[in-house]
Amino acid sequence: MNAKSTWVAFASGLLFGVGLIVSGMANPAKVLGFLDLAGQWDPSLTLVMGGAIAVGLLGFGWARRRTTTLFDHAPLQLPDNRRIDRRLILGSIAFGVGWGLAGICPGPAVVALVLAPGQAWPFVAAMLAGFWLYGRLARGGRG
């Protein structure tokens, strides 16, 4: 990765983080309000998700027509697995349950480390422990 790519990646991540803050996605109370369909539902995040899907569709459509990355011209590696298997379903369920219970997911949790570190650290610590545990289990308990 060259210096230009590094700066573009940094700027993209910063823009994403600011977008999470401005949209309310880094606020667990707002997210839980969005997920509470039977109670005091807050539909405002529907626009955020719709916008994210639109940008993603445009970005992947553009990337599908390329063979190399934009700045360092390395081979472009897009996901090609379209299988829906047990791991995908169980992972999706675990993600959804965790998001519904905590009102936060990994991206906004990293942003929350800056906004409310005292509240975010327990979630981030549990998330990192889960990453580590998955890595151990995926390797069959080896190193």
Score class of each variant (00 low, 15 high):
F34G: 01
V111Y: 07
D85I: 06
R86D: 09
F71H: 08
S44E: 12
G33V: 11
L101Q: 03
L113C: 14
I84F: 08
G100L: 00
A26E: 09
T68V: 10
G24P: 12
D72P: 14
D42Y: 05
F95C: 01
P75E: 02
A112F: 03
L58I: 13
R83W: 00
A112T: 01
P106W: 11
V22K: 12
G91C: 04
G59N: 02
M25F: 02
F60R: 10
L35P: 11
I104W: 08
P79T: 06
M25P: 06
V114C: 09
L78I: 06
G98D: 03
R82E: 04
Q77Y: 07
A26W: 01
A112L: 03
G59W: 12
W99I: 08
A102T: 15
S23E: 07
W41D: 11
V114S: 12
L37A: 15
L47M: 05
L113R: 09
T46K: 09
I89R: 09
R86H: 00
P79S: 10
M49C: 14
G19V: 09
G19E: 01
A74H: 12
F95P: 06
V110Y: 08
T46E: 02
W99L: 10
P106D: 11
L57M: 04
V31H: 03
V48A: 15
V55A: 01
V31K: 08
V31F: 04
G50Y: 05
K30T: 15
F95N: 07
L20R: 01
G96C: 10
T68I: 01
S92I: 08
F71Y: 10
L101W: 07
G33K: 08
A29E: 07
N27H: 02
V55S: 04
D36F: 04
L35A: 09
G96V: 12
R65T: 15
V48T: 15
G103T: 08
M49G: 14
R83T: 06
G96D: 01
A112P: 03
D36G: 02
V31G: 14
V22T: 05
L35T: 05
A102F: 12
A102N: 10
V18R: 00
L88C: 03
L35R: 12
A38F: 06
D72S: 14
D85N: 14
T46M: 12
T69H: 05
K30N: 10
T46C: 13
G107E: 08
G17C: 08
L113Q: 14
V31I: 14
G107W: 06
T69N: 04
A29V: 10
G96I: 05
S44Q: 13
A26P: 02
G17H: 12
R87T: 05
